[in-house]
């Protein structure tokens, strides 16, 4: 049986350039920047950054890969995992508060809603980065290398895989992450992904 771990990574401080890039405002005015600051102070302290993950051994099949929790025919995965013996499967979220703020401002200030969309997008990436950094260390100590993270929807990786991921990682129980019938995650600022593990493997 695979152990499902939970982890609470601490992301790096905000990258405001990145946030402004997400809302397509690289050269923004003073007013836009002050709106961003207002939003950042409003969401301050409201994150629930959490990750659940498990490790699986993988097997090459005649036509695709058995990843230990489901089989896939994705060529993107095949390419990225060709030198791997296992994978880390994880789900990460920044929690529901960002969704609350987006829902709130969708109703009363679309500019702020846009800002929170961008902030949420930047934060969930930062949480994933922090998590990846942490486990990279762990695996380096065992002389294993980790690949890049790949999510359903990237390349030809099936969206349908979300169902298997949610069922095997028990995301709802572990980190409060849910999946609806259209395979959309809630909280929305969340990521599920696969990272390859290999001896001397580097992608």
């Amino acid at each position: 049986m695979n152990v499902i771990y939970t982890d609470f990574p601490i992301p790096k401080p905000y990258n405001t350039t990145e946030i402004l890039r997400y809302c397509k405002a690289e050269n923004s005015t003073l007013e836009v920047k002050s709106l961003l600051n207002e939003c950042l102070s409003e969401i301050d302290g409201k994150y629930k950054n959490s990750v659940c993950y498990a490790e699986f051994n993988i097997k090459k099949l005649e036509n695709g890969i058995d990843m230990g929790f489901c089989e896939t025919k994705s060529k993107s995965l095949e390419k990225h995992l060709k030198n791997c013996e296992g994978i880390i499967l994880f789900a990460a979220t920044i929690g529901i508060e960002c969704d609350r703020l987006i829902a709130k401002y969708n109703r009363i200030s679309p500019a702020k809603a846009l800002m929170f969309q961008a902030i949420g997008a930047e934060r969930i990436e930062a949480v994933c980065d922090a998590f990846e950094e942490k486990i990279k260390q762990k695996y380096q100590n065992k002389s294993k290398m980790l690949g890049v993270r790949l999510s359903p929807g990237y390349g030809d990786i099936e969206f349908e895989m979300q169902k298997s991921i949610f069922s095997v990682l028990d995301c709802q129980r572990k980190i409060g992450l849910t999946l609806n019938e259209s395979l959309i995650m809630s909280p929305a600022k969340s990521v599920t992904a696969i990272i390859g593990i290999g001896e001397n493997y580097e992608y």
Partner: peptide
């Protein structure tokens, strides 16, 4: 003019 500013103006 960038997107957030467009929205702020519209608001």
């Amino acid at each position: 003019v960038y997107l957030p500013q467009l929205l702020m103006s519209a608001e």
